[in-house]
Design a binder for these strands. Structure first.
Lengths: 297, 297
DNA sequence: ATCTTCACTACAGCAATACTTAACAGTAGG
DNA sequence: CCTACTGTTAAGTATTGCTGTAGTGAAGAT
């Protein structure tokens, strides 16, 4: 159908109005004259006049009547004005919300962290972020690095703090902290030559940290015979206490104070880099940007 | 300020959105895919896609995320969707209201009538209009023709039924009814030769009907000596009963039945044309159009 | 594995819109 | 009458919104 033929929206499902035009109407209702109203909106009187004429045309009803040299709203169209005021007010609210959302002060951040990061390294940063951004909906998933990376890639998470992965396709990676991995011998045993170490209770096969640990142990000439596995450092630590075997843990989760570690030679066998990963195309979540900034500062 | 520089509405008072774009958003929320939504609105997918992209750009926040080959609303922006739904719903209501207003089924009609029209000639037409257009706010002013004409010219009335005026500048005039003006003699007196008529109790000087009456009486050779005046036909009629003098009244207000009038020769001295007047520029009040139609049919 | 379908996007071209400035016109008050 | 103040109209320009066509990439079929 040629659009020029339908002079009236009578057929039509919906009036096509702009918020701008409605704002004009509201401004005119709030000010004595078109000129004042136009000034209050920062447009020329001409623009206002034309805009209102267009609004009138689209609605198909006369909205104004001349009174002397001014033009005033007819009171028949109080309903239209009420509508305009409602929409403009709603839009103002939306604008404010958007302004907040764009600066990351409201929004949602879905964060993944491995346990060490959540509990030890970034706990304080997270609590202070919560305090400073109370309106941000912060959701935390604690899981092993591999799972978290998958979720970031799938878009289920906005960002994650994980052990530095090998493949970083489609991800932005920023270093957060490097933590030492320390050997923990069963209760009562000394750490001697690497050939005497073991057997081991370690993180499960497939885990990134396990990989780092195995490589480090092999490099030092240790035999890596694994007799038990767990994702939970607590569990591994307890097994060493029970004498089941040796383990290697992030220092923060080893249950050893720094001084305890230092007195033992050779106890640090490796280190792991914790990194923050985000999808590369991430100009899209200001709240996540804010969170990232909070973590890195 | 060059408009191209302000990339973001951040500074900005108000987002400039169109109802159309919001309708797109709502449609997308209601349908599985963009294609369906576009079809439901009768536009191409391309238009919908571009429209939503534009909306996204103006809001400055990502609204969608890809899921496989579709694009779905992010749930972070539930607020935006709620806003859009509110505005679209309001606009739909407005559209309906406007449709009614344009066909004159809602609105306001300010009507002026001289007493004879309101009470005798058009009473039935008005009551049936009320019944058929219950949502039209009908306001009636009863006053002499001169006052009503002024009010129509000032725009205080949408239309009026008055005695056919001499000057009709800026007014549309349609004939409604012609009514005879009959002589009423004081009780007990016969209507003889015109020279014997009088003295008179008549409508006030300045009244249009008075003018018609005087002219007619003079034309018939009567002496027009006026001893009392009133705008109210009842009052004039009563004065004749009290013997104060003769009068001339619209037949309907004379208190005489048609048969009573007919038996007397010479009793009809003139007639007056009642007309409906409206401002010439009157494509602007559908309710008034409807009312006019009701009166004339 | 490739082919097809689906769901959306990019681009060109065109009409309509929304501004600007400048010139105009009607009214009120000296 | 002149002036100041309304709002409107005209002309020119940038922006917008649409259609149609031609992609692109993901899911599913053969």
């Amino acid at each position: 159908m040629p659009r020029s033929e339908r002079q009236f929206p009578a057929e039509g499902p919906l009036l096509n109005l702009t918020v701008q035009q409605l704002a004009y109407l509201v401004a005119v209702a709030d000010h004595e004259t078109f000129s004042e109203a136009a000034a209050s909106l920062g447009v020329t009187t001409s623009a206002l006049s034309q805009g209102l004429a267009e609004l009138e045309r689209r609605i198909g009803l006369p909205l104004f009547e001349r009174q002397g040299r001014r033009q005033v709203l007819r009171d028949e169209v109080a309903d239209v004005l009420a509508y305009a005021q409602r929409v403009v007010a709603d839009t103002r609210d939306l604008s404010r919300w958007v302004a907040l959302a764009r600066t990351g002060r409201v929004g949602r951040v879905r964060v993944g962290m491995i346990d060490a990061a959540a509990v030890h390294h970034l706990h304080d940063a997270m609590t202070s972020f919560r305090a400073e951004h109370p309106d941000v909906d912060l959701r935390l998933v604690v899981a092993p690095s591999g799972e978290l990376l998958d979720q970031v890639r799938r878009g289920d998470l906005d960002l994650a703090v994980v052990v530095d992965p090998m493949t970083t396709d489609g991800l932005d990676v920023v270093h957060v902290v490097t933590e030492p991995l320390v050997i923990v011998a069963p209760t009562g045993q000394r750490i001697g030559a690497s050939a005497t170490w073991g057997p081991w209770v370690l993180f499960p096969r497939g885990s990134r940290t396990r990989e780092l640990i195995e490589r480090a142990l092999v490099a030092r000439g240790a035999v890596v015979d694994v007799v038990a596995e767990s994702h939970q450092p607590d569990v591994l630590r307890e097994m060493t206490r029970l004498g089941m075997g040796w383990t290697v843990l992030p220092q923060a989760q080893s249950g050893l104070t720094e001084s305890e570690v230092i007195v033992e030679a050779e106890i640090v066998v490796a280190e792991r880099r914790l990194v923050l990963v985000r999808p590369t195309s991430r100009s899209d979540n200001p709240a996540a940007d804010q969170f990232t900034e909070a973590l890195l500062s």
